[in-house]
Simulated assay, not measured.
Amino acid sequence: MSTEQRHLLVIGIGAGDPDHLTLGAVRAIRRADVFFLIGKGPVKASLTDFRRAVIEEHSDRPHRIVETEDPPRDRAAAGRGAYTAAVHDWRSKRADACEQLIRDELAPGQAGAFLVWGDPALYDGTLSMLDEIAARGTVAFDVEVVPGISSVSALAARHRIGLNQVGRPVHITPARRLPEIFPGQEGGVDSDVVVMLDAHESFTQVEGDGVWIYWGAYLGTPDEILVAGPLADVADRIREVRAQARARHGWIMDTYLLRRTRP
């Protein structure tokens, strides 16, 4: 039995534009023997199709693609504790599936790759999943991370704005935490705020006076949508185009920056 260790590449592939791939990402793709894809069902098949296109475009050696379906997740869990527990349960089930793929589909000495949307360090669970698998001790591997262009960077670029103001901090948060941290709220942070993972249009809970929003969906893809302006003026427009896009595609990924104008 070989004593060589498996090697895993966690590769950030950007926010949906093929040109977002870095030279480091392309080099990493060319080193992989096996690509692991986690499918999210027919509604989100375009996410898997994009990954397959990236592999076809840039891999220049014999390789295999193996796929597993993402386990279902309890999205009805309410409250911070229940939400956290639901996410941990979902990630553990995903770890079960990927552990089997790594053990059964990747031979010792080979390199396997996970292609991560955006950047692996920002609101993606791949690295924590691999930590959980490694802690189980059932299969040995090392991990190399290749950073990618995140939706946050893409958002700022597409709106042609700096992500931060001069001498000012930026706070990045999931949308469910927005009502408690936005500037002006009791205990809120004194910074601009980037919001991700917003399934419930949390920007509508923010007092709009003096607040600008820079919003984007499907960033970097042919379906990209951008809206910017005073929140009070464009909130209804964002809700409308968001609903239309979700109905058309069956899913939506959007990101936005809230910036309170300073006196």
Rank of each mutant, 00 (worst) to 15 (best):
V26N: 02
Q244A: 10
P120C: 00
V26H: 02
P120N: 06
R246C: 12
S150V: 05
T3H: 15
D233K: 13
D74Q: 06
R103T: 09
P71S: 02
R103A: 09
L122Y: 03
Y123L: 10
L178C: 08
R248T: 14
G12H: 08
D233N: 14
V87G: 00
A45Y: 11
A107K: 07
D236I: 03
G118L: 04
S191D: 06
E56D: 14
V116F: 07
E207Q: 10
G41L: 05
G109Y: 00
I133N: 13
F35V: 08
S59I: 07
V211G: 04
V143G: 06
A157H: 12
R260P: 04
R31L: 15
Q205D: 11
Q165I: 13
L257R: 09
T255H: 08
D124C: 13
A235K: 14
L163A: 03
P174N: 12
A199S: 04
A45E: 15
G41W: 09
A97L: 04
E132T: 06
P120S: 02
R27M: 03
D60C: 11
R64S: 02
R176A: 15
F182Y: 04
D233W: 07
I11A: 08
A32T: 13
L21M: 01
G24K: 06
F141P: 06
E105L: 06
I133M: 07
E201R: 10
R237I: 07
E144F: 02
E240Y: 12
I65V: 15
A111H: 09
E180G: 14
G216M: 13
A76G: 13
F203G: 09
Y83K: 11
R91T: 09
R52E: 10
A135S: 15
D33P: 02
L21G: 03
G148S: 06
E180F: 03
K40G: 00
E105M: 08
L115D: 05
A232S: 12
A156C: 14
D49M: 07
F35L: 03
T173K: 04
H159R: 10
G79A: 04
G208Q: 12
R91H: 08
S92H: 10
R103N: 05
L231C: 04
L219S: 00
L127R: 01
V189M: 10
Q110C: 09
H58L: 11
T3P: 05
G188R: 04
S92R: 05
P147C: 03
L258K: 06
L178G: 15
S46T: 15
T68D: 06
V139I: 02
A157P: 10
N164Q: 10
G167T: 08
E57K: 05
R246W: 05
G216S: 09
W215K: 12
T126Y: 00
P120M: 01
A175I: 11
L219H: 02
I55T: 13
E201A: 11
P147L: 04
A45N: 13
V193P: 01
K40I: 01
T68P: 08
G208I: 13
A154T: 00
I225K: 15
R73M: 06
R237A: 12
V152H: 02
R158N: 12
P179E: 02
I149Q: 04
H7T: 09
